[in-house]
Amino acid sequence: MPPHTPNRKPLTAALRLALAALLAAPFAAQAHFQELIPDRAILDEDTGSRVELEMRFTHPMARGPLMEMGTPVRFGVLGPAGREDLSGALTRVEQDGKSTYQARYRAKEPGDYVFYLEPAAYWEPAEGVMIVHYTKVVVDGFGAEEGWDAEVGLPVEIEPLVRPYGLWTGNLFQGLVKKAGQPVPFAEIEVEWRNDGSLTAPAGPYVTQVIKADANGVFSYAMPHAGWWGFAALLGGDAPMKNPAGDEVPVEQGALIWVQTRDMK
């Protein structure tokens, strides 16, 4: 006697189309990353004192698509002279029909410069959440190598435990995930490489690496390829926000940091 098979309703045409679309694009990017990328991570006599920064909200490993950025809430730098508000330096640039931002900055003295960005909240209807990714990147100014671990004081933040520049491919990067200044045990961190077009992921799980912090909020990751790497600790917000329709929805707070590696040549 054949085994009992539960009654199943046939798939509707709409469901078949949705399933076909899903199977046709198995590597579709899901992870959102706020980019804050300088044109150089180390300033010296050869490069000069100017750094240019690009801000995009995208899927870096998949090389898109871009998401619309609203006017940033905060953009600044914490450097040897203290904190500077750089909101006036922002320039909106349209790319692929979406708003991105750029800025220029000139380092005034030796020291490390921690650039930070609080973007406008982004409504993600597919996940039903408002997304706010507090992002930072460190640029070394003229070999001082001081201040790279300075905390900005963002609601959620990654404190680097390894100097976040001058890294070779294969180096181990470690960070401490904090919320309201306190470590977050077992926080989940998504990791993506900013694809320059030279690599195609062989399967979906290779697009976004997923790691967890330990009981003290510390995570580690060895970067296997040269380029920019984004680390995003995703945490729940304490209070809901209103989406564009005026409904209160949950908030995803991301603590992001970007670091660059180079091959030993």
Rank of each mutant, 00 (worst) to 15 (best):
R194H: 07
P65F: 14
G48F: 03
G97M: 15
A14P: 03
P26A: 12
A18C: 00
G246A: 03
M130Y: 01
H133G: 07
E84A: 13
Y165T: 04
E68D: 03
V132M: 11
A255K: 02
A187D: 00
I131T: 13
I158Y: 06
E145T: 08
V162Y: 01
A18G: 00
L23D: 09
P244L: 11
G197I: 13
D46C: 09
A203N: 07
E159R: 15
G236A: 14
D39H: 03
P10L: 10
T47C: 04
H4G: 07
N195Q: 04
G64W: 10
L199R: 15
W229M: 01
A107T: 04
A62K: 12
E109I: 06
W258F: 07
A187M: 02
N7P: 04
D46S: 15
Y165Q: 05
F219P: 00
H4L: 13
F27C: 11
T12L: 02
A232I: 13
D214M: 07
W228N: 07
F75T: 11
L161E: 05
N7H: 08
G217R: 12
G97A: 14
G230D: 04
A89I: 05
G181V: 14
F33V: 13
G88W: 04
M223F: 03
A20Q: 15
A25V: 10
E146H: 02
E157D: 00
G48Q: 11
W193N: 04
I211H: 07
D247Q: 14
D140T: 02
D85K: 06
D39Q: 02
A232S: 14
H59Y: 08
R16K: 15
Y206K: 08
L167A: 02
L22Q: 13
M223S: 01
T91F: 06
G147D: 07
I189P: 00
A21I: 06
A226T: 10
P6F: 05
E94N: 10
F75E: 07
V210H: 12
E35S: 09
E84Q: 14
V191C: 00
E190N: 08
G246E: 09
L11Y: 01
A41W: 12
E45I: 05
E252M: 12
I211Q: 07
D214W: 06
A18R: 15
T91Q: 13
Q260C: 03
D196F: 05
Q95T: 09
V210K: 15
E45N: 14
A14F: 04
P38G: 10
T100E: 06
H32C: 02
F57E: 05
P72K: 11
P110C: 13
L161T: 07
P60D: 09
E45C: 04
L256M: 11
F27H: 10
G128F: 08
G204T: 13
P160D: 11
Q182P: 01
I37E: 11
E68N: 08
A215W: 06
R50S: 14
L176Q: 04
S49M: 05
P119R: 10
Q260N: 11
F142S: 03
P164W: 00
P160G: 12
Q95D: 09
Y122W: 08
T208K: 01
G246D: 06
G254D: 03
G254I: 04
G153Q: 06
Y101D: 07
P205Q: 09
Q102A: 13
V210N: 07
P224M: 12
T100A: 10
A144L: 05
E151R: 15
K265S: 11
D149W: 03
M241E: 12
A41V: 14
V259E: 03
M1F: 08
V177Y: 09
E192F: 02
